[in-house]
Design a protein around this nucleic acid. Structure first.
Length: 816
RNA sequence: GCCGAAGUGGCGGAAUAGGCAGACGCGACAGUCUCAAAAACUGUUGGGGGGUGACCCUCAUGUCGGUUCGACCCCGACCUUCGGCACCA
């Protein structure tokens, strides 16, 4: 008996050996076909918790699998290092964001190394370092040059007490998280990227192997809808504007308009409100400004609004309708104004009921008697009360009314999107400075490329309020205009960190390239990524921004493709007692404890075994010993001397059966790997190893044959348990390293079962199982079934009506 | 409220082109080893009923219906849980 496997000794030993022999060094010039297996890089939060392992370990297993299949695999790692938490640490604990971030990087790097992944650390990317953010700034300039960046006013959460901008997360129950002062919305001039230019393209995922639900989410995020913009005449003397434009997808209901609703921020509100309603309207707007968008859009809230005192005229029928304001209408969507048709829209109906506004039915259904007083009728139907459009079908009326409106010059057909442009300005310190200069003479001037990076100054004073210290850093703000050389001011806003993460995967391909953001040759070799794995929380934002980035770069001629990620896979989340893990809840599971007791390989295998990767699961360590025991059994099975147990001749039936299972296992493990079904992959490896253990005990195969079967087991297990298999491999006397071995291939002839088990049913119930040769014909199978004595017990005294045969599987005898 | 996903033993989960429900593991129980315990190993393990026994019958995949020779799988209605959400006009 050999001594037991000791992961605590073996794991660091092999990690050191791998590092010394640079076994995972990725060489661009390697002639093997390339495979880019990307994992979402972690944020530098401080500690690697079990959720990180759940993301990193299985993706490493997959990358190792591709590597053994003969690919030149790039499976890089880096850190998303800019962001709010670093700044909070600075404010709360007086640690500089850079110090905090870099010490977290150091700690997480150490923890990441304990996973035993194939990361090539020479390619590590850290977004907060000047050599990285120099190029983030460069991309900003490119997008600006290309006409995709612009400035506009946009609201922010503002704490009047701290005089600082707050993130949504920093607004607690409508108040500032530091001083609880009521947060208000304040308009600031900020930078935007024109992502809406790519709206239609971003909705398409034709070539992408992505989960359907993510595609759906993204399509819903773009929210394309075709409709009509129609103007109503303002019936209010002395107003410069004569019309209000609304967007509707239901022009067929325009004769049913009984009022209009504007967003509280709509510019016309101030102009049309009558003196009588001024106070009420002002109060309402003031309250709306205090509400976050999430609150405003919550369905829990009652739909409230106020009358402006003004009226508008529906040009189609001359109806004079009141104009209201309500916060359920958003300025950012459509035209910020809606025509309300309570008879045929649920929200409008609720609003009309509340304020006793009239309801006028203009669509009826033959299927029901349009009783619109109880609820809105939102389906299509026959048009009534609508002048010469009466009698038309809704669908036809939509076109007819749209055409009529266009002819009259009252409006036009438009496509509207929910998608808004990407706001990239952040009023914070810990981010990449936006490379722009404000000159009194020349206006807004881009920083010349040669002057990049615009360095984030280190010696700044952090204010307890959270206000960006950059504004007060004279050495940073004061500069000269790159254009005219006169004194000028730097932009003090920094970039959204999504900007940093929109291109990091390209930097991995040439991380030390000094002449540009990336080396085009390397991009051509590696991009787009073959697979991208990560959490579903990035289903929309990050993935969406990255796709936009690539489309923009493609149109600038900088890259040859427009989609960064060919295949996407979202792993589920690991919960604790069915709750999300978070530092505040104190329920974060730290894997270090398990790694130091049982080894990384056991943790890797256990995480993959607990269930399908895309489903995640609740953390419960009760089963982890099972995986540790399993590795222990393989250890003694492989290393205890076989010839002590027994020695058979070559080519016995037992050997034949063993090789059949071996090839079947290679097949199922390979297929499961490709589908990222790691739980079933491990199950089949367990079945195979259990079988080999029995063979070993019986001594029913030859030593050489047995050793071959074990060698296949080890290679199939190598991606999952890299240290363990390396140790066993070396002890068996094979050459270093198991990870440079070829992935076993299966022979479907050997994998073929000689006999099949035929299930025999009577009226759909299993009554017998008979073995038949693999090539059994339909007639043979049927007669085997009919001759079964068990079957005859159930068929006696009944009439045979049908015999169903499923080739190689089942015979169903139908009796009456 | 809308959209999406999912409900299978004591537990995590297998099995979907409609064809043996419960693979594999955990736990539990029994045994081997031990003075004893732990560890390790071996065996049993969905419920109910029957047989001395190899076994046999029957019920069972959230609930109720439907389609089918046959349903965890497809269809309809409902219940529950978990995710996402921007009242989208």
């Amino acid at each position: 008996m050999v001594e037991k496997y000791n992961p605590i000794e073996a794991e660091p030993k092999w990690q050191k050996r791998w590092e010394e022999s640079a076994i995972y060094h990725v060489d661009d010039n390697n002639k093997n076909p390339k495979w880019y297996a990307l994992t979402m890089f972690p944020y530098t939060s401080g500690d690697l918790h079990i959720g990180h392992w759940y993301a990193m370990a299985p993706s490493d297993v997959y990358a190792r699998f591709k590597r053994m299949q003969g690919y030149n695999v790039l499976h890089p790692i880096g850190f998303d290092a800019f962001g709010l938490p670093a700044e909070n640490a600075a404010i709360k604990r007086g640690i500089h964001p850079k110090t905090w971030t870099m010490s977290n990087v150091e700690n997480m790097r150490r923890q990441l190394k304990s996973i035993g992944a194939i990361y090539d650390w020479d390619r590590e990317v850290i977004t907060c370092l000047p050599e990285y953010y120099k190029w983030t700034q460069w991309f900003f300039l490119k997008l600006w040059q290309f006409g995709l960046a612009y400035r506009a006013k946009a609201p922010v959460n503002w704490c009047p007490n701290c005089q600082a901008v707050l993130a949504n997360e920093q607004v607690v129950n409508g108040g500032c998280w530091r001083c609880e002062t009521l947060v208000v919305r304040r308009d600031l001039e900020q930078w935007f990227f024109r992502i809406t230019k790519y709206a239609d393209e971003l909705m398409r995922h034709d070539e992408l192997d992505w989960p359907e639900r993510i595609k759906l989410m993204q399509a819903n995020w773009v929210g394309r809808s075709e409709g009509v913009e129609i103007s109503f005449v303002i019936d209010y003397p002395g107003v410069e504007e004569k019309e209000i434009s609304v967007f509707t997808t239901r022009p067929d209901t325009i004769y049913g308009v009984t009022f209009m609703v504007l967003a509280p921020e709509h510019p016309l509100v101030q102009k049309i409100t009558t003196s009588e309603y001024k106070l009420e309207v002002e109060t309402y707007i003031e309250n709306a400004r205090r509400c976050s968008e999430i609150e405003r859009l919550s369905t829990e809230r009652k739909k409230e609004g106020v009358f402006t005192g003004a009226y508008a005229i529906n040009r189609l029928n001359g109806d004079k309708v009141p104009i209201w304001i309500a916060d359920y209408v958003l300025l950012s969507y459509g035209t910020g104004a809606v025509m309300a048709v309570p008879a045929h829209d649920e929200r409008d109906f609720v609003f009309a009921e509340r304020y006793r506004l009239p309801v006028k039915a203009v669509v009826v259904s033959s299927r029901r008697d349009g009783d619109v007083l109880k609820e809105a009728f939102i389906e299509n139907g026959l048009i009534v009360n609508s002048g010469h459009f009466n009698g038309m079908e809704s669908t036809a009326a939509k076109t007819a009314i749209a055409e009529y409106v266009e002819q009259q010059g009252w409006g036009r057909r438009v496509v509207s999107y929910k998608l808004r442009d990407w706001l990239v300005s952040r009023q914070r310190y810990w981010g990449a400075p936006i490379p722009a200069v404000y000159c009194d003479k020349c206006g807004i001037v881009p920083v010349p490329e040669k002057d990049l990076p615009v360095l984030l100054p280190d010696d700044v004073e952090f204010k307890a309020t959270g206000e960006s210290p950059l504004k007060y850093c004279k050495s940073f703000v004061d500069t000269n205009c790159p254009n005219c050389g006169e004194a000028a001011r730097r932009e003090t806003d920094t970039m959204d960190t999504f900007m940093c993460s929109s291109w990091y995967f390209m930097r991995y391909t040439s991380p030390h390239f000094a002449q540009g953001a990336f080396d085009t040759d390397a991009i051509i070799k590696w991009m787009p990524t073959d697979i991208y794995t990560g959490g579903a929380e990035h289903a929309v934002m990050h993935l969406f921004y990255s796709r936009f980035f690539l489309k923009a770069l493609r149109d600038m001629g900088l890259v040859h493709f427009g989609e960064p990620f060919k295949r996407l896979f979202n792993q589920g989340t690991v919960t604790r007692d069915h709750q999300k893990m978070s530092k505040s809840k104190g329920n974060v599971v730290n894997p270090d404890k398990y790694v130091s007791e049982l080894g990384a390989d056991t943790v890797r295998a256990y995480l993959m075994f607990i269930g399908p990767w895309e489903q995640g699961g609740d953390w419960d360590d009760s089963g982890i010993m099972g995986l540790s025991r399993w590795l222990g059994r393989i250890w003694s099975m492989a290393l205890d001397k076989y010839d002590e147990v027994g020695c058979a001749a070559e080519g016995t039936q037992a050997a034949k059966d063993m090789f059949r299972l071996m090839h079947q296992t290679i097949r199922s493990v390979t297929e499961d790997m490709d589908r990222l079904r790691f739980n079933t992959m491990i199950s089949s490896l367990m079945e195979y190893s259990n079988y080999l253990a029995k063979i070993r005990e019986a001594g029913s195969v030859n030593v050489t044959e047995y050793r071959e079967a074990v060698s296949v087991l080890l290679r199939l297990l190598a991606p999952t348990a890299p240290h363990f298999t390396e140790e066993v491999w070396s002890r068996l006397g094979y050459a270093y390293s198991i990870h440079n071995q070829r992935w076993p291939e299966w022979d479907s002839v050997i994998a073929q079962d000689e006999e099949i088990l035929l299930v025999v049913q009577v009226n759909g119930k299993v009554r017998d199982k008979v073995t038949a040769p693999a090539g059994v014909t339909e007639d043979e199978a049927k007669s085997l079934a009919l001759n079964s004595s068990k079957v005859q017990c159930f068929t006696a005294g009944k009439t045979l009506t049908q015999v169903v045969y499923v080739p190689g599987k089942l015979v169903n005898i139908v009796m009456k």
